[in-house]
């Protein structure tokens, strides 16, 4: 692989790295695991990059490879088993512009999302990233109708958790 290709790839990755970070945050629960998954996704992206054609956006392509790696390819290493040292919200929230009830609600919501299974998480992630149902269905390999139905079920599930 040429230096130029590598340079181009790194530039794009640096610009769009937040997509990978967000996938990692959703599928891992501590700092080491986050970095581990980040590396694996980057390696998979790099391996697939020569076949990347400009006909889809780089970011769209990243969602697919990122989620595929998180859901299917990634093998959790031993050090990622530790789950107690992480609380999604505390890890994330530094801003203090939330009012108490909203913060509380968000806390519960994030916790609920973490408890979803891998597939549900993927759907929620794409939804939060403002992807339409066509793209969600294409990324996951399910029909648009099924993506919608599943998404509605997840919403109901979250609602129940939030308002028991």
């Amino acid at each position: 692989m040429t230096k130029e290709l590598e340079h181009h790839f790194v530039e794009l990755l640096e610009k769009h790295q937040n997509i990978i970070h967000k996938v990692c945050r959703l599928y891992t629960n501590n700092y080491d695991a986050h970095n581990d998954l980040f590396q694996e996704i980057t390696i998979q992206l790099w391996k697939a990059y020569p076949k990347f054609r400009g006909d889809s956006k780089f970011s769209t392509w990243m969602y697919r490879v990122g989620l595929n790696t998180a859901i299917t390819l990634y093998r959790k290493s031993k050090r990622t088993i530790n789950t107690q040292d992480f609380n999604g919200v505390e890890f994330r929230m530094k801003a203090d512009d939330y009012d108490d009830t909203e913060e509380q609600q968000l806390k519960t919501l994030y916790k609920a999302v973490y408890e979803l299974n891998d597939i549900e998480k993927a759907l929620v992630f794409l939804y939060l990233e403002d992807k339409d149902y066509r793209e969600i269905s294409e990324t996951m390999g399910i029909t648009e109708v099924n993506a919608r139905v599943k998404m509605n079920r997840i919403k109901t599930k979250l609602k129940t958790i939030l308002n028991p």
Partner: peptide
């Protein structure tokens, strides 16, 4: 945020996928 200097070494690493 990772800089490009952080990203280059990752490309040399081996995948440990299933």
């Amino acid at each position: 945020k990772l800089s490009s200097e952080d990203i280059y070494p990752i490309l040399q690493k081996k995948s440990s996928s299933i």
